[in-house]
């Protein structure tokens, strides 16, 4: 049975080979290695799309039993179990075997944890920057899907732009401003794209692109701009949804750099733009808050990613390659 599968795989590989060749177009040679000679001990492999399948040696004689069409040793061990295969018919059947476009990914993520400390900077707020450190923790359910949590701390880092003071001074117009305290969210990540880059034609690194989304809370408060003599606001958490996309560049099998852009979307509470004339009314907290505003806090997050455990083993071997993806 095992040999049958191998035979079908080999047939599929042979079938797929002309297609790959066709994709190269005229005047170009057959697909050849575009892999580094050594990435953590790997030997050169054929290009993706042909990686693995097309590269293994195939010995027809190994699959020839009695009459030239058997399936090898099983017929000698148990003649009753010896299947009779008409190879012409088998070859004519449609092939629906799944052939992985990329064999032995550089990094196996399934069932590993990921810790991701990062630093976030605001991309879309000219008035107040909300930088801050954060950390994310993910657990990979599959190679391309993960669930996780993230948290970020802003409070001491809010930075009001000098531009606000200039507008207030020059145009006598106050813009309601908000500062952030913390954020936390539960997230789901999906990695639809991965690839590799050759740097300076000399070394190769792998990368993933991922999409992330989640829901959590963001604690904010208005900065008292309109009536600072009377108003002092406390932080209040708001429900915040987030969506984003990121790029993860692997330096080895457990360490990567991460650049992510994420939009935290929430309903923010702004300071009231009106000041009651009566001091007692001015002191009344009920008069301090004004409109709400749907706010998008778009952040760039730069960080590193550490996968735990550090090492892993590939489930299936790859010819001529190191099967251990250990820490390096």
């Amino acid at each position: 049975m095992k040999h049958t599968r191998i035979a079908l795989l080999a047939a599929a590989a042979l079938w797929g080979f002309p297609a790959v060749g066709f994709a190269q177009g005229e005047g170009e040679e057959a697909p050849v290695a575009e892999e580094a000679p050594a990435e953590g001990g790997e030997e050169a492999a054929p290009a993706e799309g042909a990686e693995g399948e097309g590269g293994e040696e195939f010995d027809d004689a190994e699959f020839e039993g009695e009459g030239g069409e058997g399936v090898g040793d099983i017929c000698e061990i148990d003649p009753a179990a010896c299947p009779t295969l008409d190879m012409a018919k088998e070859a004519a059947k449609p092939l629906d075997e799944t052939i992985k476009a990329v064999q032995q990914r550089f990094i196996i993520k399934k069932h590993r944890f990921e810790l991701q400390p990062f630093w976030g900077i605001t991309l879309n707020d000219q008035f107040v920057q909300h930088p801050g450190p954060g950390i994310a923790a993910n657990f990979y359910i599959t190679e391309v899907m993960a669930v996780g949590l993230n948290a970020q701390y802003f409070e001491p880092f809010n930075n009001e732009s000098a531009f606000n003071a200039q507008v207030r001074r020059a145009a006598r117009v106050g813009v309601p401003l908000t500062e952030y305290q913390w954020a936390a969210a539960a997230n789901f990540s999906y990695m639809p794209a991965s690839g590799k880059f050759a740097g300076f034609g000399n070394f190769i690194f792998h990368y993933d692109m991922y999409l992330v989304g989640g829901v959590g809370a963001l604690s904010t408060r208005p900065i008292s701009v309109i009536d600072p003599d009377y108003r002092f606001f406390t932080y209040q958490p708001h429900v915040a949804f987030n969506v984003g996309a990121g790029l993860k560049i692997f330096f080895n099998r457990w360490f990567a750099a991460v650049l992510e852009v994420r939009d935290y979307i929430f309903i923010d509470q702004l300071e009231s733009l009106t000041v009651p004339p009566d001091p007692q009314d001015r002191a009344d907290e009920a008069n301090w808050l004004g409109d709400t505003s749907l706010t998008n806090n778009v952040q760039a997050q730069l960080g590193v990613s550490v996968f735990i455990p550090f090492s892993f083993k590939y489930r299936l071997p790859k010819a001529g390659a190191d099967t251990a993806g250990g820490a390096k």
Binding site: N159, S161, R169, D227, L273
Partner: peptide, 18 residues
Amino acid sequence: ARILRGQGQKPMKTTIFT
């Protein structure tokens, strides 16, 4: 209401965090 007190107000935070 929009006339602001503290004309020429300095930015709220220092740049140490930057």
